[in-house]
Design a protein around this nucleic acid. Structure first.
Lengths: 166, 166
DNA sequence: TTTAATTTTCAATAAGTTTTGAAAATTCAA
DNA sequence: TTGAATTTTCAAAACTTATTGAAAATTAAA
């Protein structure tokens, strides 16, 4: 496979994977592009390379900065902003875990805590709701603690955990 | 919190969480409803309870059956199909992991394998693409093996892993 | 068979999301 | 200051996905 073909495939694969994880295509593609770029890129260059409008590029660059998975730098004597991505996959994974935990898991846990508070009752529906929501809360909290731990650890810790598993 | 309020909140929370994980709202809500229902429900009852059309209910019930997270049963002397969900959260989580692994992770690994095959070159872009895609492939394969292991284990294994982590 | 109950399909429509592009706002060197 | 470069905003348009509801297909009891 030649470079150009591989590059396109990489960006496309990342875009598709992103979509199925609720991250929009433009955002995943910009991230993919920065991930494999040897040097930081300007908005102009991103627009050009991915054939997307200025507005779209700008919006999604902001979102990626907000997620903390890309960063910006200034070049001396140049007013443009240049963007680059963390190349350490482990750091990237940790950041994604932190954000999704905060945005999705924590609100769900909060809601489950309220729901599982429902007072005991003889009604079968209420009983089942209480039981299921308690179980789910328990499981979700365990996953949350696991992710919390992972998001605070280094790559080596992850490899050690893997070894322990097998 | 009263039963009806808690029930609505549970279904809504599940629906929202589902959306941010690429599962559509109707599908998550049907699943939530079956999860907390003490007895199997018919399409009619699901439509009624969630105020959704027959077509929508039917389509998403099929999708949930396809995911293997709900099942159907017949009641003697009744032509309707009744649906119920696995109440074991661990079994549910395993099924979800298996499906997403198969549908999303495995195709991504396949693409990364191809991309990282790109031949060595002095071009900085090609070099970076090769390096990043190799790293990413390695990480993704590790995650894949971890999930493979988890999807084949029982709840107790999961708790033991958690203990080992802390 | 016939018939009524039930499930499935699917074209039309609604709802939601993403993208564009041009105008407005901001920034900073001269 | 001024003005050119750059970034941000946002209404409108394009695109995508979800939902409806009625008609067609299937099922099984009488």
């Amino acid at each position: 496979m030649q470079y150009q073909e591989a590059k396109t495939k990489f960006i496309q694969t990342w875009g598709t994977l992103g979509s199925s994880w609720g991250i929009n295509r433009a955002m995943s593609q910009i991230h993919a592009l920065l991930l494999i770029s040897p040097q930081p890129l300007s908005t102009e260059e991103i627009m050009e390379e991915l054939s997307m409008s200025r507005g779209n590029a700008n919006m999604n660059i902001r979102a990626l900065l907000d997620w903390g998975v890309i960063h910006k730098e200034q070049k001396p004597g140049d007013r443009k902003e240049y963007f680059y991505s963390d190349k350490k996959i482990w750091e990237l994974a940790k950041q994604v875990v932190r954000e999704r935990k905060r945005r999705e898991l924590e609100p769900a846990i909060k809601a489950l805590e309220e729901v599982s508070q429902i007072k005991d009752s003889s009604d079968a529906g209420a009983k089942e709701l209480k039981k299921v929501s308690e179980d789910l809360l328990d499981f979700t909290q365990k996953v949350d603690r696991m992710l919390e731990k992972a998001a605070g650890s280094d790559e080596n810790w992850f490899y050690k955990q893997l070894l322990k598993m097998f």
